[in-house]
Each structure stands twice: as C-alpha cells, then as structure tokens.
C-alpha cells in the first residue's frame, strides 16, 4: 500500500484548483461584462473584443472563452483522475479512470470494429467536451454548444476524418464510391456535404431550442404570477412565485438529459460515419497484395 506523501497532496489540491478556476473566472467575466437588463432577453454569445485581421475581423466571443475553460477543466480532471496511477491502481479515482477507459474501448470496438480501436481517446474526448460544454449551463454560463460556430468546427473535424478514411484506397476509389449508380452522383455529393451540416445543426439546434424554450416558459410564468398574485399588497405582489421551481423541472430535461444525449449521439454518429465510409475489405486486400 502506497502512502500519500505531502507532495502528492499538494499537487492534488493544485489540480482541483485548476479544475475549478477556469469555470469560476468565466462566471466572474460574465458577471462583470453583462449589463443590467430589464426582463428576459434571448441573445447570442456576447462579443468581448475583436482582433484586427487582414480580411475579416476576428471576434472573441463568450462561447470561445467558455469552451477553452471547459477544455482546461477537463484536462485537469483527467490529470486528477490518473494522478499517481503509474505506481499501480491504489486509489478510488484510479478505478474510475479505468472504468472510463475500458468502457470507451468496448464502445469503440463494438461500433467501429477492432481496426479503429485507436479512436477510443478521440471519441471519449468528443463525448466529454460536448457533455461538459452543455452542462456548463448549470453554472449560469452561456453553453458553447448553443453557438453554431463551435459545433460546426467539431463537425468539420469529423468530416475531414471521414474523407481521410474514404481516401485510404486512393482518390479513384473515392470518386467511384459516389457514382454507385452513375445517375445518383450529384445526390451523393450533396448528401456527403450535408453530413457535417446536419451533425452541426442537430447538436446546436437541440441545445439552443432547450434554452429558448426554458426562457420563454420562465417569462410566461413571470407574467402569469403577476396576474394571479398581483392583488397582494406591497412588494409581495412583485415576487414571481410561479417562477420558483417550475423552470427547474424543464432544466432537468433540456440541460442535463438533452445535453448528455446529444453528446452521445454526436459521438455515435462520428463512429458510424468514419467506420461506415472506410472500405475495410478492399483496403485489407490491397495491403495483403502489397506485402
């Protein structure tokens, strides 16, 4: 049994601080920069500042900052979970890390086949980033996944992967795969381009619609409670009693369940598209011939 040294504890505490600090600083930035507004407003991510660029200015938005904070937090979480694992599995959190790794490998080998087993870290990174980005709403922050630009970036990354694995047998085979019945070639090209668009819109639309519906329901409940409890004297009439608690039930579905489900679906679609587009048997045949 290893003993927890003092240095180990200090690094642990440092990692936990680094895990919490980005999120906290995002909350502070949000509180400082958001102007006071009357009522409930539906708006996109606020722009902090823009960097001058030769062709078009580059705006630095809330969603970029939040997604960077989530990335740093997840990195420190992973370092925390695997801290000291080189000396063997001897802490509770090491078992947790092992469970994550084993589950990811099992999922990838079930859905993509054993050839793609090296994809497991990438898939888990997508799930973790997407899920934590959606769950960041629980701290009152703007979720990066409800910004189309962030999700479109991930979808383009996946599209590049799909194209790379389709090109593995050379560009001629890639072009052939479109003209399966020759007449269908234009439609096949359109459906190929539609893959990243639909992936991005699916994720972004689900998260955004959840937050829009939550805001609409909250504002409607505010108006209703003003109507019902408006007769109460003094400041009691101004308190929106109906707004307490009822929007939280919606939040359980829209923020927690929907966010995690979309992360799972994005990862599943990535796995299916990448492994489905790869001509495995042809590639293996050619590899054998080359050897």
């Amino acid at each position: 049994m290893n003993k927890i040294s003092r240095r180990f504890k200090i690094i642990d505490i440092l990692l936990i601080i680094l895990m919490v600090l980005p999120i906290l600083s995002c909350i502070v930035i949000k509180v400082v920069t958001t102007p006071l507004k009357e009522g409930i407003v539906i708006s996109g991510a606020s722009i902090f500042f823009t960097i001058k660029m030769p062709f078009q200015d580059l705006p630095i938005t809330e969603s970029q900052i939040n997604s960077l904070a989530v990335i740093i937090s997840i990195l420190c979480l992973c370092l925390y979970l695997t801290h000291g694992i080189r000396d063997g599995v001897w802490l509770k959190r090491h078992h947790f890390a092992e469970i994550i790794v084993e589950m990811s490998k099992k999922m990838v080998s079930n859905n993509m086949g054993d050839y793609f087993i090296s994809f497991a870290p990438f898939i888990v990174a997508i799930i973790g980033l997407s899920a934590f980005s959606s769950l960041v709403t629980l701290f009152g922050l703007y979720p990066p996944t409800s910004d189309l630009n962030i999700v479109a970036g991930w979808a383009i990354l996946v599209f590049v992967l799909i194209t790379y694995f389709k090109m593995k047998c050379g560009p001629i085979e890639y072009a052939k795969s479109f003209a399966n019945p020759v007449l269908m070639a234009p439609l096949n090209v359109i459906s190929e381009v539609a893959t990243p668009i639909s992936m991005a819109f699916r994720h972004y639309g689900n998260v955004l619609s959840g937050s829009v519906i939550s805001v609409l329901v909250a504002s409607a409940l505010g108006g209703l409670s003003k109507m019902v409890f408006g007769f109460l004297p003094g400041f009691l009439g101004d308190i929106p009693f109906l707004q307490v608690g009822i929007p939280a039930i919606l939040s359980v579905y829209f923020d927690i369940f929907s966010g995690c489900l979309q992360a799972y679906i994005f990862a599943m679609l990535t796995m299916m598209y990448v492994s489905g587009g790869f001509p495995y048997e042809l590639y293996m045949q050619r590899k054998k011939c080359d050897v």
Binding site: F201, R202, N206, L208
Partner: peptide
C-alpha cells in the same frame, strides 16, 4: 431507438433553425 430518434429529429431541427 435514441439514435434513430435523434436522426429523425433532424428535419424538425432544420425547421427550428430557420424559424430562429
């Protein structure tokens, strides 16, 4: 089923994006 539901939802989400 969840997978299929998510894919079936896509057309509705296109409409939602257009509406937004």
């Amino acid at each position: 089923m969840l997978m299929g539901c998510a894919i079936a939802e896509t057309t509705g989400l296109y409409a939602l994006v257009v509406a937004i």
